[in-house]
Design a protein around this nucleic acid. Sequence first.
DNA 1: GAATAAAGTGAACAGCGTTCACATTTGAGG
DNA 2: CCTCAAATGTGAACGCTGTTCACTTTATTC
Lengths: 199, 199
Amino acid sequence: MPDTRSERKAALRERLVDAAHRRIARDGLGALRARDLAAEAGCALGSLYTAFADIDALILAVNARTLVELGTALARAADGKEGRPALQALAGAYARFAFANTRAWSALFEHRMADGGPSPDWFLAGHAALFERLKAPLAVVEPHLSPEALDLRARTCFAAVHGIIALSVHNRHLGLPGHSIASELEAFVDRITMGAPKA
Amino acid sequence: MPDTRSERKAALRERLVDAAHRRIARDGLGALRARDLAAEAGCALGSLYTAFADIDALILAVNARTLVELGTALARAADGKEGRPALQALAGAYARFAFANTRAWSALFEHRMADGGPSPDWFLAGHAALFERLKAPLAVVEPHLSPEALDLRARTCFAAVHGIIALSVHNRHLGLPGHSIASELEAFVDRITMGAPKA
DNA sequence: GAATAAAGTGAACAGCGTTCACATTTGAGG
DNA sequence: CCTCAAATGTGAACGCTGTTCACTTTATTC
């Protein structure tokens, strides 16, 4: 009793995303090979292109999965917290996720569309959710900001924390040594949120 | 009266670096093609590999040039300034350079060695000079820091500013809109240097 | 159960960085 | 000025890449 068409196709897509995810996690985005993925998923090379339009689409699917994992890690970290403690928790969770899933996390930002075009909307929305999450705790810390200014400030804070972590993850000589990141990040968020109540 | 061997070789190297620089500036690091470069430099494909070990080495030469340009831009901006104004000037100059030379500046950070190995020391030193430049003005703003803590803080500040700019340059939807960068950056550096005399 | 549409297949294609056997040019010694 | 070994220039060829396509196999529909 063979599976239906759609079941088989969905299963193939999942096996391919699994294989790509493992490969990215182990060797990074640049080590993805269409032939390796097809072999690991147990399908012919051509079948890959019946499941995904191209390798970019497959990478996007992996990134979507990573984005969900990152989102839940952040949500868990900030759960029940507000203001400065929430921001500290988010920054710490972001750093831990980046160091625990270095290559998959890097793929989120390294990847560019092959034709140079924009990523699909649903993917950009997932990215946007990252800094949207900062708005509520930031609003507690900086109640004087207008909604527009709050949006800008959330982007700035996200980018700053991201930059600190990204440089440390990618560039051993330029970034912070691993044992200093947590403390520097904490001091940094302290500065950013200065003026707010400490607890 | 043909040129000497070494003169010809040096001229070829320069033409190749010029061509690669133009190509990177126009279309980005990913658009470099060995055949294009050879054609534009007026040499055979194989000759490229008598001048440079591989494309990585050529990219490194381009990046070295970009790094020098960036260094002089920063030096000019901070000239005669100290403390907070110096930091503001450096951040502003860094942002202006990044937006005026988007692709060449991106190449400094996008590029990874093909074999995954480390970049040569002279190149890492050039990168390190970026945040070394922050130490003196930072020491004025935060005189209580030990040399070791100052080093860490300089790395953190560089990474934060770099992150804000990088995300705005690369990711239109996640980063700041162009017209807000200068003001957000200024507010940000203000926060970082809080407690120091304003002038 | 036959007809039809969908999916699977892997050889073939175009493009890439890099190499190599060979042609050319160069500069020092007779 | 000529000679000739050695350095340099050359582009076809190699191995690899993502992607396509004519063809076979399979699932669904009437």
